[in-house]
């Protein structure tokens, strides 16, 4: 049975009497331990789908089921032990006036989990940060280190599903590689299911087994990783995304120019 099932999801934002459909009739299902990628440009609704799962966007149609059960409204505490999210900007997703220790131990405090000290130290080690960082503030860390803390926080409650909203797009290329490696290792070790959003086809290709291309809030095409690698996309839009990816560009230039 699929772990995440989204059926005909529609998200409508209302502002000043105007209605904006950010997501329209999107359906997808993700198997346990699978890694599923959502790709699209700005305004494609890819991040909105993640926010809708977390109850942070107004769902106006369709259904979301986690483990076969419809998600509760409001999401509640049980939901937080199943689904967690990593945000795009590590500078904005950590509380600037809380130490790393507080950021990591607060989820445990909320859920009354004992043995917090040991688990915080363990979480830091898991994401490759020295335990000496424990009482630092976010502004004493680099972007990559902050994103590691954000990942550690998301994993404190040992969720099954991790929603990744452009987790590396604010990072330098070399740091991106480290964070992607970390995510893959954690998925392996903890048996996680990923639902990942990115505008970068190469990143999605590296991380995901199946991919959905979105445009203007609608599904354009769903394909497997092999389809993508061998350029077997059927729609023009998916192909234009593929052609515009930065690493394709290099192939064109390495050929000697006349």
């Amino acid at each position: 049975m699929a772990l995440i099932e989204i059926d005909d999801l529609t998200v409508t934002f209302r502002s000043k009497g105007r209605e904006v459909r950010a997501v329209e009739g999107v359906s997808l299902s993700v198997e346990p331990r699978e890694s599923y990628g959502l790709v699209g440009e700005s305004g494609s609704g890819k991040s909105t789908i993640l926010r809708a799962i977390c109850g942070m966007a107004p769902v106006t149609g369709g259904s979301i089921r986690i483990g076969g059960k419809p998600v509760p409204v409001p999401r509640g505490r049980a939901f937080s032990t199943e689904v967690q999210m990593v945000f795009q900007d590590p500078y904005a997703s950590l509380h600037p006036r809380h130490t790393i220790d507080r950021t990591l131990s607060e989820p445990l405090a909320i859920h009354g989990v004992p043995g917090r000290d040991a688990r915080v130290v363990q979480a830091l080690t898991d994401v490759g940060l020295p335990p000496a960082f424990r009482f630092r503030y976010p502004h004493q860390l680099s972007g990559g280190q902050r994103q590691r803390v954000a990942i550690a926080r998301a994993l404190m409650l040992r969720p099954k599903i991790l929603l990744l909203d452009e987790p590396t797009s604010a990072l330098d290329a070399s740091v991106q590689a480290e964070v992607l490696n970390l995510l893959n290792r954690l998925r392996e070790e903890q048996g996680l299911t990923f639902l990942m959003v990115s505008h970068d086809l190469a990143v999605i290709d590296h991380m995901c087994d199946r991919i959905m291309v979105l445009q203007h809030g609608r599904t354009v095409e769903e394909m497997t990783r092999d389809d993508l690698a061998s350029a077997r996309m059927t729609t023009a839009y998916a192909r234009s995304l593929f052609d515009a990816s930065a690493d394709r560009m290099l192939d064109a230039s390495t050929e000697p120019t006349p």
């Binding site: 999210m85 945000f87 509380h95 607060e106």
Partner: peptide, 16 residues
Amino acid sequence: SDYIAAIRLQGASSPR
């Protein structure tokens, strides 16, 4: 901000 969204997602109550 994202850090409020994150803590809300951790199941924190409004007073907290």
